[in-house]
Design a protein around this nucleic acid. Structure first.
Length: 843
DNA sequence: GTAGGGTTAG
């Protein structure tokens, strides 16, 4: 018979999800909210109290019948000795080979502790089963050790099973469990356990606060975290440094930098972790300069910096491009002997590469004793950032040769390199690698793959990745929509945008990706719909969206609205200005374009190569020869921008339009770069001096031009109707043809002769007239007349430049049908009204 | 016996 000294009241804690083995017990709930447990049958074993286990041992060791006390002491002492020496095997064997009556609780506990220390799950399980077989009650001391063993050996499920059966109020075990759930990122379970603790009235300690703040932080539960903040202050933990450090971490991880700062300022005795946390708070929230400020304060306060400080401050240098400080920190860290640490080296390497000092990055990389996948990835990203994609790809191959396996980050970096250099073949190799290594389940990887395919111009491949993705995020949709827009597939972009709206909420990035599709189709109705959507969602404040919106209205022919919206952009950047300058140019307002260009410079914005294309283009479309030359000259002299093919093309355009064909030809021949088809095209298509053109054609000889088939489209009630030159398959083809014939007849009656030179070469007069009638822009205009209500503006877009005959006919139609016609061709806008066109012949 | 800050990316 066991005699037990019961030193605590016959009351036990009931753990929350417990199905206690004595189901005869009834829980009682007192006013303080704690559940007490009172067993209906007093059992000595059941009521053994964890806190008094030493008493139990003494009693049991002296009261066992029929066994020599000395022998028992020896066995238990022997097990203790084995454990002290770390001889787990012998200790376990002895436990397993002993009689129930021979073992004291302390013996089980020592072995369990050793199992935990050596992470020997199998042995731990053996001891657990001996404990059960011997009928030892798993509670109190033994229970704690069992849970601890299972947690340490990584068997959380079994740990929880034991934990749930315990009747313990030990805060230590609760902390252990909550933290373990946090480690496996099951934060909800951690929060659940914390809730149970609260219900049971178990008072948290500093560890509990650290653990629960970690859970709330990861779950983004700001309010709950703030509640914990109040609670821990109430319990007097406001000067507990580990708790306050955890609180700071909670705040800055949830982007509450100012709250973190407040806590930091209130903390009197800060340790190195508090300082590091504050630096990290600023760096991770996009305020690296403030991080540097804290670092300076830290150094002047005489606090010893550690490796984490160095790493934090290196990140601050990377983010703020502070190379000077980065170098100084590097030098200091070498003296302080941190340079043997791989994480330090990776950070230094990353700092140099992000600060644009690639040669120092390479030096660090080459001198590193040990390189991890992070080192390689960092170096590869460094090359990509500097535009050295081939070097990046070379390094990637070298990495593989060194048997370092790329991870998800390496893959995204190298795909970015392929995207930047348009290396479709290498990109496909990487795709193969991804598939073979089961990395295609990562959304990041798939998004990078789609981006690579989109940038390499293969939207079919991008779509094939997209369609197979089990989970798509907003970036996946945006990448595809943007890819279609940029690859000249605006219809596909709009279609996918519609599909997306049913499945996911578009963000500002989506909007700035889809607006160019509307712009390129001149799909005003769709564009306006999207305008409404972005206003409702407050996306106009996004610079990209605002710029894209202005561009959309410019390209849909509504310059007035574009101008109005442009004025509403609070901070206009280079893109905003370039868009409006090009807009004025397209619509034939050369003087306004020049004024905008000057305004931009007065606003302190430095023009770039693209904004010069816009202004030269504007000059050429308004016939402003002198101004054009002036801009062409200052581009080089004042702004140090070397003219590219596009700038030359604008100048050739300008000269040709204003009749200076010979000058244009001479200009082309003096170009320091090889002229391409667009340059010759500018010369040939614009000048109506056909004899000269014929001569030029002969002189140019084989440097011929390719011509895309002409097509025009018109949007009616949100649907884009496309017409191809000479196409008679349209359902309304007959109606269109008869309308055009009638119009042609009236034009002839009024003394107008069709411009035969625009028709196909080598055709006779009648054929030429028929061919002219079939031009796509005429078909689209006629379709507009037939389908739009009277008086409504007809907006037609053409992929090539408008033909002269169509231009004349459109002007004629604007009078006879009393409608405004806005015709956008590949080059500019023609606003036709009452027989006149805004282009005034410059097109 | 448990806890607090740190690298690469679309």
């Amino acid at each position: 018979m066991l005699m037990l000294c019961i030193t605590s009241p016959n009351v036990l804690w009931l753990s929350p999800s417990s199905s206690y083995h004595d189901n005869k017990a009834k829980p009682l709930k007192p006013s303080n909210g704690c559940i007490f447990f009172k067993p209906s049958i007093p059992s000595p074993l059941l009521s053994s109290n964890a806190g008094n286990s030493c008493v139990n041992f003494r009693v049991s060791a002296t009261s066992l019948a029929g066994t020599s006390n000395r022998e028992i002491v020896d066995k238990n002492a022997k097990i203790g000795e084995f454990c002290e020496l770390g001889n787990l095997k012998n200790a376990v064997e002895m436990v397993c080979g002993s009689q129930r009556s021979e073992l004291e609780l302390v013996a089980y506990c020592s072995v369990l502790e050793l199992c935990a220390g050596t992470k020997s799950l199998q042995d731990g399980k053996r001891v657990h089963s001996v404990i059960c077989d011997n009928g030892v009650v798993v509670d109190g001391y033994v229970g704690s050790k069992l849970v601890f063993m299972y947690v340490n050996c990584g068997d959380l499920r079994e740990a929880r099973r034991v934990f749930d059966k315990l009747s313990n109020g030990k805060v230590f075990l609760w902390n252990l469990m909550i933290n373990e759930y946090a480690k496996i990122r099951n934060f909800r379970e951690g929060v659940y356990l914390f809730g149970n603790m609260q219900e049971l009235g178990i008072q948290p300690n500093s560890y509990t606060f650290s653990c629960i703040l970690k859970c709330f932080s990861a779950l983004g539960c700001v309010k709950e975290g703030e509640w914990v903040h109040g609670y821990l202050y109430k319990l007097g933990f406001s000067s507990d440094i580990t708790v306050v450090n955890s609180l700071m971490a909670f705040y800055f991880k949830n982007r509450r930098v100012e709250s973190a700062r407040k806590v930091f300022d209130e903390l009197r005795d800060r340790d190195v972790i508090s300082w590091n946390s504050m630096i990290s708070a600023y760096v991770s929230n996009g305020l690296p300069e403030k991080g540097v400020e804290i670092f300076r304060q830290m150094v002047s306060s005489g606090i010893d910096v550690d490796l984490a400080t160095i790493i934090n401050i290196l990140m601050a240098c990377s983010d703020s491009g502070n190379l000077a400080l980065g170098r100084a920190v590097h030098a200091y860290a070498i003296k302080a002997c941190f340079n043997g640490d791989i994480m330090f080296c990776n950070n230094v390497l990353d700092m140099y590469s992000k600060c644009g000092d690639l040669s120092n990055a390479i030096q660090v990389f080459e001198k590193m004793g040990q390189r991890s996948v992070v080192s390689w990835t960092s170096m590869i990203s460094g090359y990509v950032r500097e535009g050295l994609s081939d070097e990046a790809i070379r390094l990637f191959c070298e990495m593989e040769e060194n048997d370092v396996s790329p991870d998800v980050y390496t893959i995204t970096s190298i795909l970015h390199a392929c995207a930047c250099s348009g290396s479709l073949k290498k990109g496909k190799d990487i795709h193969k690698y991804i598939t073979e290594n089961d990395m295609d389940s990562s959304v990041f990887v798939c998004n990078s793959l789609m981006d690579m395919y989109a940038k390499c111009g293969s939207m079919e491949d991008a779509h094939s990745v997209f369609s197979r993705m089990p989970m798509k995020d907003i970036v996946s949709w945006n990448t595809m929509i943007g890819g279609y827009s940029k690859n000249g597939l605006p219809n596909e972009a709009l279609e996918l945008f519609s599909e997306m709206q049913q499945k996911s909420k578009p963000d500002s990035m989506t909007i700035s990706s889809v607006l160019p599709a509307c712009a390129s189709l001149a799909a005003l109705d769709r564009g306006q719909e999207i305008h409404g959507y972005l206003l409702r969602n407050g996306y106009f404040l996004d610079q990209y969206v605002a710029n894209a919106l202005v561009d959309m209205y410019v390209k849909c022919g509504v310059l007035v609205l574009a101008q109005l919206l442009f004025d509403m952009i609070p901070v206009k950047d280079l893109i905003s200005w370039t868009v409006i300058i090009a807009g004025y140019g397209m619509h034939g307002f050369g003087r306004e374009a020049i004024a905008a260009f000057n305004d931009m410079r007065n606003a302190g914005i430095e023009p770039d190569s693209i904004s010069f294309i816009s202004i030269l283009y504007a000059c050429s479309h308004s016939g402003l020869v002198d101004e054009g030359w002036r801009f062409f000259d200052i581009m080089r002299s004042d702004h140090n921008i070397e003219p590219k093919l596009e700038h030359y093309a604008c100048m050739v355009d300008l000269l040709a339009r204003t009749g200076n064909l010979t000058k244009a030809y001479k200009f082309i021949n003096m170009m320091p770069i090889e002229p391409d088809a667009t340059i010759w095209g500018s010369l040939l298509c614009e000048a109506e001096k056909w004899e000269e053109v014929k001569k030029l054609r002969e002189r140019i000889g084989r440097r011929g031009l390719k011509k895309d088939p002409g097509c025009s489209w018109i949007e009616i009630k949100g649907k884009v109707n496309i017409f191809v030159a000479g196409d008679t398959s349209h359902p309304e083809a007959k109606k269109i043809e008869s309308l055009l014939k009638k119009l042609r007849l009236r034009m002839k009656e009024e003394g107008y002769n069709p411009k035969m030179q625009y028709a196909l070469i080598n055709a006779d007069v009648v054929e030429k007239e028929v061919a002219l009638c079939g031009h796509s822009e005429k078909l689209a205009i006629a379709f507009g007349i037939l389908n739009l209500p009277p008086g409504k503006t007809i907006r037609v877009t053409k992929n090539l430049r408008v033909c002269g005959d169509c231009h004349e006919m459109a002007k004629f139609i604007s009078t006879t049908s009393r409608r405004e016609i806005v015709l956008r061709d590949s080059n500019r806008f023609h606003h036709m009204k009452d027989g006149n066109c805004s282009c005034r012949g410059f097109w």
